[in-house]
Amino acid sequence: MTLKNAYKPHSHVRQTMPATQTAAAPLAFPMLPSLGVGTLDSYISYVNRVPMLSAAEELHLAQSFRQTENVDAAKTLVLSHLRLVVSVARQYLGYGIPHADLIQEGNIGLMKAVKRYDPNQGARLVSYAIHWIKAEIHEYILKNWRLVKIATTKAQRKLFFNLRSNKPTLSALTPNEVAALAKALDVKGADVKEMEIRLAGGDIALEGDDSDEESAYAPIQWLADNTQEPTERMAAAATDALHGPKLDQALMALDERSRDIVQSRWLAMDADGNGTKTLHDLAGEYGISAERVRQIETSALKKMRGMLQAQAA
Rank of each mutant, 00 (worst) to 15 (best):
F65Y: 14
I150G: 10
V148E: 09
D212Q: 13
Q104Y: 13
G202C: 10
H99R: 08
H131N: 06
Q15T: 03
A182M: 07
A313S: 08
K8S: 13
S211Q: 10
P33V: 08
E214R: 06
W266T: 03
D72P: 01
H99C: 05
A300M: 03
L125P: 01
D272V: 09
D72G: 07
A250M: 05
D191V: 11
A74H: 00
N166V: 01
L279H: 12
T298Q: 15
Q221H: 10
P51H: 00
P245H: 05
G36K: 04
N226D: 14
W222Q: 10
A23H: 11
D101R: 04
A25K: 12
A182N: 11
A290Q: 07
H99Q: 12
L53D: 03
P26E: 08
A123E: 07
R257E: 07
S289T: 15
I288M: 06
L82Q: 10
K115A: 02
K277Q: 06
S80K: 00
R198D: 09
Q249G: 06
A184H: 10
R116L: 04
R90F: 04
R292Y: 15
A25M: 13
R83S: 07
R124S: 09
T227E: 12
L93P: 02
Y92A: 02
L223Q: 12
T298C: 09
H280T: 15
D281N: 11
A180K: 11
K167M: 13
L308A: 03
I261M: 02
G306C: 03
P9E: 02
Y217G: 04
V187H: 10
D248S: 11
A190P: 10
K158S: 12
G189E: 11
A73S: 02
V78M: 00
S299R: 14
A205F: 04
H280N: 15
L254Q: 06
L77A: 00
D118Q: 09
V13P: 00
H138D: 05
Q104V: 12
Y43S: 07
E214N: 03
K302W: 06
A235G: 05
A155W: 07
T153F: 13
A310V: 05
D72W: 03
S45L: 11
V37N: 12
D240V: 05
W222Y: 15
G284Y: 04
Y140V: 04
R164A: 14
R14P: 03
I296V: 13
Q156H: 14
N176D: 15
I261N: 01
D191N: 15
P168H: 14
A268T: 15
L251N: 05
